[in-house]
Nucleic acid binder design. Sequence first.
DNA 1: CTAAACTGCGAACGTCGTTTGCAGTTTACA
DNA 2: TGTAAACTGCAAACGACGTTCGCAGTTTAG
Lengths: 210, 210
Amino acid sequence: MAAAIALADAEGLSAVSMRAVATALDTTAGSLYRYLSSRDDLLDLMTDHAVGELRPYPQRQGDWLDQLQALAQRQLDLHRRHRWLGELIQRPTSAGPETLDWYDHCLGVLSDVPAPTTAKFEAIALMTGVVVLFSRTQTSTAQPFAALDPARHPHLAAALANPGQPPQDDLFGRALRALLTGLLGERRQEPVAEGVHAPDRAVSHRGQAG
Amino acid sequence: MAAAIALADAEGLSAVSMRAVATALDTTAGSLYRYLSSRDDLLDLMTDHAVGELRPYPQRQGDWLDQLQALAQRQLDLHRRHRWLGELIQRPTSAGPETLDWYDHCLGVLSDVPAPTTAKFEAIALMTGVVVLFSRTQTSTAQPFAALDPARHPHLAAALANPGQPPQDDLFGRALRALLTGLLGERRQEPVAEGVHAPDRAVSHRGQAG
DNA sequence: CTAAACTGCGAACGTCGTTTGCAGTTTACA
DNA sequence: TGTAAACTGCAAACGACGTTCGCAGTTTAG
């Protein structure tokens, strides 16, 4: 797993082939199957190990929004360190122990927030989504807008021609706080109607963490 | 391209192999390279065609927030129709014509919003991110939380045991509006400082649309 | 001392994306 | 109308991939 992570850090996820990992370990591809049931297994291990690097979780201070923001910042650092993580956590595989711990910690931070469980899961998933997006924003200076016709795409051309305006301070933090506040209610109270209803069906969620 | 889309709709992206597409077209894999330079080319075509299905763009009515929400709703429908799209639009390839049109349209909706270009691009990208996340939420009833120890993960266990609370109405809309409002400023005015500075470097962005 | 389990290795299978050479057909132009 | 160029399709092959399998060699347990 360590060899695979080193490979992915250096040359990207596609470089993590069974043969490449085996070569790094001075063995052969087939031998790896003594310890792994499949390549997906290896990717799961990589993912959960990376999520483990989120420790130590930031100290609990401030309200839940401050705490979640601190967690998100740590996620962002992690994703910048391991640029392959964003792709892996989107797979619908089952969560490893570190991922479970992280989810539990996030839910703990939100334990006093009067919002439906559904909203909390969505909020955590969206927080990760924001992290992944921002972690990619800097690394890819790609220009997906090659040659465009200013007549057909006036707004796009204008926006690209005039990159002006200073980028807002801490766009990441702004987006995150807006999203979390909107999903989980105002910072202090204004609780969402929490009436007692017959329990609904369990919400579906994907193992998207880290 | 149509054959590839049909395949992806029916059996997922992994079923879109050159041989499978060729078989559907009653030919062979190698023959496809008369028209495509690579498999990525095919995926690009699929992506842009799907983005084209966003037309006709919803009628312009309401303020920019209402309009963006209508666009996002159309995106959401699209992603539910083509569940492979979320994966494809995350690739750092160059944008096709339909994608360019869509970006331009979104920027047009935002043309009167006094926010930095950076923030607008981020907002559009994040809007798509929210769409992708919600498009996956319903389809995957997966249980990434298999057997978990309630002692080690008390909050997680509690949350799963008590799915109660009715899911909030239109969580999608709430998340989206919160995010956009937070990134692009309040609905009416409260413009972000738009002072005249020396032009910054062009913002980096990925071809993430649809 | 022995039997079981574990470990590693080479070879192979099937699939993948892609390339190449060869034929057959269509098109463009004198 | 004739000919050269371009286009199209096909079979075969290449290298790389994930994965399986059988066979040795080694370690462990009783």
